[in-house]
């Protein structure tokens, strides 16, 4: 089976074609670099995404945060529920972990807030 996809790893956005046999990617074409091949391989089997969002700190300020690695795509909304219940205490520096192990990723601050 052939599957067409757009690589989302970088802004170039190459159009990829993945050849899938028995639930496995056997070949990828259209990629300009190796990251595109790796993307197609996970995307067709177990897609993953980075989540970027915000949390409301105690005191009301809004802090931008992200998952420090990708999480399974189908867990994105579950992760949002967990993150929206976090209300950290300031001050916080960019890179500080707000919560550990949310679907295998840490939630980290991306901005200094005092």
């Amino acid at each position: 089976m052939k599957r067409e996809l757009t690589c989302i790893v970088c802004p170039i956005g190459c159009s990829l074609v993945a050849e899938i046999e028995d639930g496995k990617v056997v070949s990828v074409s259209g990629n300009t670099c190796p990251r595109g091949k790796a993307y197609a391989e996970t995307e067709c089997v177990a897609p993953k995404r980075t989540v970027t969002t915000t949390v409301r700190c105690i005191g009301g300020r809004i802090l931008p945060v992200k998952t420090d690695r990708t999480i399974p795509k189908e867990k994105v909304f579950d992760a949002m529920k967990i993150i929206n219940n976090l209300h950290p205490v300031l001050p916080i520096s960019a890179g500080d972990i707000i919560m550990k192990d949310v679907f295998g990723s840490n939630i980290v601050a991306v901005k200094n807030m005092f």
Binding site: P11, T52, P64, K66
Partner: peptide, 21 residues
């Protein structure tokens, strides 16, 4: 706050606030 910044410049995917920082 989304990511996608800095791939050319820093070789890693940063969010806007991280790039500015």
């Amino acid at each position: 706050i989304h990511n996608g910044f800095g791939l050319h410049k820093f070789g890693q995917e940063l969010t806007g606030p991280e790039y500015a920082l």
